[in-house]
């Protein structure tokens, strides 16, 4: 055994330093982070990055239709001659918009219900949690199809449908964490100190749920993209000519297998984004040491 280097005066690592250490030693998490950042940049700067920004709309160029991938069109062109790569970049925009819209509503709603149910207990808990159970028992895709069919298919209604189903998971997660935290003395200590319910819910309990919420959001993002793409693929989500990855796969599927790039390229884009969010989520989970 070679004598290892000695550090006698120990630097005490803070939990943040330990978390960052764990994250940076996790190649999968780093890959996930890089992918997510690239998707976000693509979405934000799509008009600057896209070789043919006009392809995002109802632009047609029949001379160039069904062109195979080339230097000029990295991912080929579609049935009306639009550049698939440009449409994929804009497609990330739509997908991320969906993620922000859905989670922006579903997460706060679900988290607040979970906090309230876990903290107050009793009848409040019974009503909230049983309602959550009922929502969870509904088959999500069938529900979403029903809602978008009734409300007419478009981006906003797709968001509403997914949001209505999504909050339940956050309620369950937060409820479980709060129930465990209620056994800790700091909650009672805050009560003895005269703290309001608002203070205990949002200043004492919520900070102890943040890591779990962050991990859950990251893992959720991938699934929301997939769910939105599924709806679009079935024709009940975002409508043409808006460049949506799911719609692009559906349209491109008609020209399979000869003009494969029209369906496969947007499909790979979906895979890329979801893989990124999932790897990042797993990395965050290991880094923040939370159980989901």
């Amino acid at each position: 055994m070679s004598a290892p280097e000695m550090i006698d005066a120990q630097r005490v690592l803070t939990s943040r330093q330990m978390a960052i250490y764990r994250f940076t030693r996790n190649p999968a998490a780093l890959v996930g982070a890089v992918i997510v950042v690239s998707v976000v940049i693509a979405a934000i700067f799509a008009p600057l990055l896209a070789p043919s920004p006009e392809s995002a709309g109802s632009f047609v160029d029949f001379r160039n239709r069904h062109a195979a991938p080339s230097w000029e069109h990295w991912m080929g062109t579609d049935n009306v001659g639009r550049d698939v790569f440009s449409r994929v970049l804009y497609g990330f925009r739509v997908s991320l918009g969906l993620v922000v819209g859905v989670l922006g509503v579903a997460v706060p709603f679900g988290v607040i219900l979970g906090l309230v149910a876990g903290y107050f207990g009793g009848w409040t808990e019974t009503i909230i949690m049983r309602f959550t159970d009922i929502m969870l028992a509904l088959p999500p895709l069938a529900m979403a199809l029903a809602i978008t069919a009734v409300l007419s298919p478009n981006l906003v209604n797709a968001m509403i449908a997914i949001t209505l189903l999504w909050w339940t998971w956050h309620t369950r997660l937060i409820y479980r964490i709060v129930k465990a935290q209620m056994n800790e003395d700091y909650v009672e200590a805050a009560q003895v100190a005269g703290a309001s319910h608002f203070h205990i819910l949002f200043r004492e309990l919520l900070p102890n749920c943040i890591s779990a919420i962050a991990v859950k959001i990251s893992l959720d993002a991938g699934f929301v993209i997939l769910f939105g793409a599924s709806l679009s693929f079935l024709g009940l989500g975002i409508q043409p000519p808006t460049p949506d990855l799911g719609t692009m796969v559906a349209t491109g599927a008609e020209y399979m297998p000869e003009m494969w790039w029209q369906a496969v390229m947007p499909g790979l884009a979906i895979l890329y984004a979801i893989l990124g969010f999932n790897l990042l989520g797993d990395g965050l989970r290991d880094m923040l040491d939370v159980e989901l």
Binding site: E184, A193, G194, A195, H199, P207
Partner: peptide, 25 residues
């Protein structure tokens, strides 16, 4: 309390925690 590991909130700074009774009186 018996166990300060449990009676102090792990996610709040020392000042925040000592300030709670002050804030609510």
């Amino acid at each position: 309390y018996q166990n300060p590991g449990s009676s102090l909130n792990p996610r709040r700074t020392i000042t925040d925690q000592i300030a709670v009774p002050l804030k609510f009186t």
